[in-house]
Design a protein around this nucleic acid. Structure first.
Lengths: 234, 234
DNA sequence: AAATAAAACTGCGTTGCATCAGTTTTATCT
DNA sequence: AGATAAAACTGATGCAACGCAGTTTTATTT
């Protein structure tokens, strides 16, 4: 089994990773329409893609890169999810009344994002049922992941939450046991609902216990089986 | 402004309340199809509607009643949301590969739920774009609410979370400042991510502070403005 | 109506984790 | 390359909130 974490307990992952392309479901005319009413924009590492509360005139399609989707209020931050290639963001604004973005988005790495006119997108959803069926699947998958993360953040304690996020980064984003972390410890905190200091302490603990290898930003998962057990038992 | 909580900060509500009817978007033929391939079932208070992990062969449409949608694992419970009339549950299984229910559902009050064959539902989504567009809106609304609750549960402390849920129950479910609570204190705990004892203590505190009135299961919100401030400041 | 079970409640000890106030390291700027 | 800023890290302290173990109240059963 490839992803035992998913199979057993409640999924906790915070990355949305879709391999299928909705673009292929469009007719030639519809593709032309999309192309005409969208632009591809490059964002540099650290740049803000959009801010919560802003007027939502576009759907964001991630062509390349890694971004965080987050809420901020006062000094409290929460990263809702990390998004990579093939993600659609800003879908909440599809709903007619709902013209404000419900979250902010910032690029972790250089990213290319196609901004699609929301009215065109809405029109396509209304006229192409195959397309909107696909979008429904995307939304459902996203919802399922959110539920899992919800469980992780509310029911597990720090060890479990950190194990969750490390496994998630490895499985879903970098698809490798070792990777260069583009997020700061503070970001990991916002992602796991723990303080920056606790992230640091816990990471060191994991390192001392031989669960992970770590030199600054480069992380390697050494004992995945034990990380999974920590994830499971909270 | 009717719902200042929603307007200001991040929405926190855990009830999904849709007034629009998707049924009207179907053609006569499609209505007949649905009617033929669905049954309406009555559940008594406390009865289990479905369990997580079970094979998902139906979409659940709530015709009447109040249910909890929840995850349970070991001794840890999390109520994902409360659902009332007009809700569609089990949508996650629409996704082709995804044939297992991702959550359990239990009735709080006597409820009538229409169980719709999932293949028929899927077929209608694929053939009727107006219908699936509407479903997309429902899912988006749900997602937005989940995000708000996510924020509430991970960033606020007990006072704020309890205030959130009380306001939510009042605004969204009972639509009245006073109501008979069908949930136990333990359920409130599962809903707010706090222990049963803490729910009890905090409720008493709210009562002593004149924020709410309370005799056993009957609750009355006395100082909504202050509850909202507590909700906002965590 | 008595017996039993299940919630609701109370007080107390414990602890997980945040917060604060620093120091050291790494990155960025000029 | 040196200066400045931003992360990364460390240790000490305090408290929010949990879990326990018990009592009281409310429901449910026979």
């Amino acid at each position: 089994m490839n992803e035992p974490i998913e199979a057993k307990g409640i999924s906790h992952c915070s990355v949305f990773d879709s391999e299928k392309s909705w673009y292929d479901l469009l007719s030639d005319d519809e593709k032309i329409l999309i192309d005409k009413h969208s632009v591809s924009i490059s964002f540099k590492k650290g740049e803000t893609v959009c801010k919560r509360g802003a007027f939502a005139s576009h759907i964001y399609y991630m062509e390349e890169g890694l971004v965080k989707v987050y809420l901020e209020e006062k000094n409290k931050n929460l990263i809702l999810m990390l998004a990579i290639r093939n993600n659609l963001l800003g879908m909440a604004a599809i709903f007619d009344g709902n013209d404000k973005l419900p979250y902010s988005v910032t690029a972790y790495t250089d990213s290319r994002i196609r901004m699609i006119d929301i009215n065109i997108f809405r029109q396509l959803l209304k006229q192409n049922a195959d397309f909107s069926f696909h979008v429904i699947n995307l939304l459902n998958e996203k919802t399922a992941q959110i539920y899992g993360r919800f469980f992780s953040l509310t029911q597990k304690q720090l060890h479990g939450r950190l194990a969750d996020i490390l496994l998630c980064l490895s499985n879903r984003i970098f698809k490798s046991k070792s990777f260069e972390l583009p997020l700061s410890r503070a970001d990991l905190g916002d992602l796991t609902g723990m303080s920056t200091e606790s992230v640091i302490r816990m990471m060191k603990e994991f390192k001392d216990d031989g669960l992970i290898g770590m030199h600054c930003k480069s992380i390697e998962l050494l004992d995945i089986a034990r990380l999974e057990r920590i994830s499971e038992f909270g």
